[in-house]
Amino acid sequence: MFDIGLGELAIIALVAVLVLGPERLPEFAAQAGRFVRRMKGYADVARDELRRELGPEYSDLELRDLDPRNLVRKHITDAMALADDEPVREGLRPLAEGELPPYDADAT
C-alpha cells in the first residue's frame, strides 16, 4: 500500500526514537494504532453506506474499485479486448512505410 521497504522502515523508527524519545514512543504507537482503527471504521461505514444507497446490484462493491487508476485500467483492457475481436472493415488497410494518411481539406 505505502511501498515502504525494510530500510525505510528502520530509518523511520530511528527518527521516531530520536524525536519522541524511548519513554514516549509506546504512547505514540498506541495513539497511531487507535487512529488507524478509527479510519478503518470510517472507511467501512462509508463502504456500507455506498452499498446501501446504490442497491443490491452493487453489493460486492469495494472502495478500491473506485480508485481512478483501476477504473481507467479496467476500461482500457476491456476496450483492447473488444478491439481484438472486431473484424477489419472492408477497404481499409494499414499504411505502408512512409505513406502519409489521406488528407481532407473540407474536414478541417
Rank of each mutant, 00 (worst) to 15 (best):
E23L: 10
D65E: 14
D65K: 11
R93N: 01
E23T: 14
N70C: 01
V17K: 07
L71C: 01
A79V: 05
P22A: 14
R64G: 03
E99L: 08
E49L: 13
A105N: 00
T77I: 07
L82Y: 11
E53Y: 02
K40W: 05
D44N: 10
H75A: 15
V15C: 01
E53I: 09
I11V: 14
A29V: 03
E97S: 14
A16C: 05
L82D: 14
P68G: 03
V88C: 10
R47P: 02
A96T: 12
V15R: 10
A30E: 14
L25F: 14
M39S: 03
A29M: 05
D106V: 01
M1A: 12
Y103K: 02
L6N: 07
G5D: 15
F35V: 04
A16D: 11
T108Q: 03
L9C: 10
I11W: 02
G7F: 05
G33I: 02
E23W: 12
V72M: 13
A29F: 02
D104Q: 08
E27K: 06
E8D: 10
R69F: 03
F28L: 05
L71I: 14
P87E: 06
R24M: 06
V36H: 04
M39I: 06
G7N: 05
I12D: 07
A16N: 03
L92Q: 04
R47Q: 15
G55M: 15
R34I: 02
A43R: 14
A83H: 07
L61T: 13
L61W: 12
F28H: 06
R89S: 06
L92E: 06
L50E: 06
I11D: 14
P102W: 02
A81W: 12
R51H: 05
V17G: 08
E49M: 08
G98W: 13
R34Q: 10
Y103F: 09
L95N: 06
A79C: 11
R52P: 00
I76Y: 13
R69A: 10
V45A: 13
L50S: 08
L54R: 07
L25K: 08
E90K: 01
R89P: 00
P87K: 08
E57C: 01
V36S: 04
L25R: 09
A46L: 15
L100G: 00
L71Y: 01
A43C: 07
L61A: 11
N70K: 12
E27C: 00
A96I: 02
Q31G: 12
A46K: 09
A32F: 03
Y58R: 10
E97Y: 14
V72G: 00
F28W: 05
N70L: 13
M1N: 07
R93P: 01
E90F: 00
F2H: 04
T77P: 00
L20K: 05
L61K: 14
A81S: 15
R24G: 06
G91S: 00
G7A: 10
I11N: 06
P87N: 03
V17D: 08
D104W: 08
K40T: 09
T77V: 04
P102L: 03
E49N: 07
D104A: 08
K40Q: 11
E86V: 07
P56M: 09
K40E: 13
P68Q: 10
E99K: 11
E57Q: 12
D48C: 04
D104E: 06
V19A: 11
R47T: 12
Q31A: 10
